[in-house]
Structures are given as C-alpha cells and as structure tokens.
C-alpha cells in the first residue's frame, strides 16, 4: 500500500532557536492527516524538512519504508511525494492544461529525441498524458478552465489547479502547505469538500493548515504542534475537546 509517510524524531535547530523538537508523526496509507498549530509553532519548518527543502538537524523521514532523509526535493517527488506551495506556484507562461500535463512528467512515455521526431510513440505519450490530465481536471472541476491562461484565474481556482497538478503525478503522499490561505470560509469549506471527494485509499494527504475548521472537517487524524513540539494527536472529535489545544490557540475558535 502506498502513502505511508513517517517522520521520526525530527528536529530542526537554527542558531539559538529550536524550531522543531523531536517531532514524530505518521501518515498511514489512505489517510488525510492534518497538522495544525498557532503561528510560530514550527509547521513550515517541519514541512520544509519533510519536502527536502531543508535538512533536519536530527531525525529521519521515511516514505513507504524508504529513508528519504537527505534526498533532494526532486528525488522525493520522483519517489511519490507531491506538494503544493503556500504561495501558488503555477507555471504562468503555460495554460492550465499544460500545467496539468507537466504533472504527468514522471510518467511520460517518450524521450526528447522521440518527441522531436514526433514518432508514433511520442504521439501516444502525448495522447496518454492529455487524457490523464483531462481526467484529473474533470475530477477537480477544472474542465472548463483547461485552456485558460493561469494568470487570469481567481486565486482559489489557481490553488485547485496546483492541487490537480500534484494529483496528476499519481503521488503516494500529497503534502498541502496551507492551501486555504487566502480563501474565505465558504471557499475553504468547498475546498475541503472537493479534497474529500477526489481522495481515495491509494494515496494519503498531510495537510498543514491554519484554518482549523477545515482541518477538523476533512482530516481523519490531526496532530497539534506548539513551539515545535507535539501537544496533541487524535481524531477531530478528540482534538476538538482537548484542553491543551484550546489553551494553545487562546481564543481562536476551535471546532
């Protein structure tokens, strides 16, 4: 089963600051797991360690049993770790369709020479990629904007395109970096719905988020971070009632 992500005792020290302190968490295959915490809790740092942008000071990261600590982001992506960015990073010179097609890069069935010569194999590869890209677009309600230039889309739609592009890679684990940032409650609720709808057991999700209602409504399990340490872990119901979590958020509405 694909989609098993483990962080084992992950720590990240900066000069004089411990951003992440011995964090261990697990995303089991097929799960949607949330990671929440107040500002400065270390969510972003943890995220960067898992995606490979920053090397951890201590601890390991394992993806489907393979130790990927020390791997580059691209290498992790090739192993099945997909991610989105806090600020949407779509390829602005390409249409939505071409962005999604790039999601099929790892599964593309033809090389450069074949592409240049447009051999039958190259044509088949392109057709196959196009079909799969369209399928993903369909699942994410993006079929109507496929030929739009990315820059003209509303922010929420761009966000969905980025998620769809990540899905097109057929990931084992999808890491979402604050996808609801910049969305209002209606939009983020809709995003959550869509995520639930397109998700299936063949892949899992780690959702790092600020928007607590979204996390509570979408995730199977939730981890709560404060000052780089885990203070709670459990189902949404358990987290909703957890005193420590309430205390950590101080007046931010939980649940």
């Amino acid at each position: 089963m694909r989609g098993h992500l483990e962080a084992d005792g992950l720590s990240k020290h900066f000069a004089g600051l411990v951003a992440v302190d011995g964090l261990s968490l697990e995303v089991r295959p097929g799960e949607i797991v949330g990671l929440i915490g107040p500002n400065g809790a270390g969510k972003t740092t943890f995220f960067n360690c898992v995606t490979g942008l920053e090397p951890p000071t201590a601890g390991r990261v394992r993806l489907d049993g393979v130790d990927v600590t020390g791997w580059s982001p691209a290498a992790r992506a090739r192993h099945g770790l997909a991610r989105t960015f806090q600020q949407v990073r779509l390829f602005r010179h390409l249409s939505v369709r071409e962005n999604l097609l790039l999601g099929r890069h790892q599964h593309y069935g033809a090389g450069a020479l074949q592409a240049a010569l447009r051999t039958p194999r190259a044509r088949a590869a392109e057709r196959d990629a196009a079909a799969r890209a369209e399928a993903v677009a369909e699942r994410c309600n993006l079929a109507s904007v496929l030929d739009a230039p990315v820059g003209e889309l509303p922010y929420g739609t761009q966000r969905m395109v980025e998620v769809a592009r990540a899905l097109a890679t057929e990931p084992a684990v999808l890491l979402l970096d604050e996808p609801a940032a910049g969305m209002d409650t209606t939009e983020s609720a809709a995003f959550g719905e869509l995520l639930r709808r397109v998700h299936d057991e063949s892949w899992s999700v780690l959702l790092v988020e600020h928007d607590v209602p979204l996390v509570l409504s979408v995730c199977h399990r939730i981890y709560v971070l404060e000052f780089g340490r885990l203070i709670a872990a459990g189902t949404p119901a358990e987290i909703r009632g957890d005193e420590r979590v309430r205390a950590a958020y101080f007046g931010a509405s939980v649940g």
Binding site: A77, F85, L90, L94, L102
Partner: peptide, 26 residues
C-alpha cells in the same frame, strides 16, 4: 515538436519556477 511535448513544457517550468518543477520530479 519539442515545444508541444513534455520537453518544451519542462523548459517553461524551469523558467517559471524551479521549485515547482522540482516538486514535479523534473
């Protein structure tokens, strides 16, 4: 032909965002 294939798209991806390209395994 290259432009209309994965190769051409990859070139554009590197131009626009190397990080996002890396995240796609490019």
């Amino acid at each position: 032909n290259l432009r209309r294939s994965d190769v051409g798209r990859a070139w554009f991806a590197l131009r626009d965002s190397e990080d996002a390209a890396a995240a796609l395994g490019i």
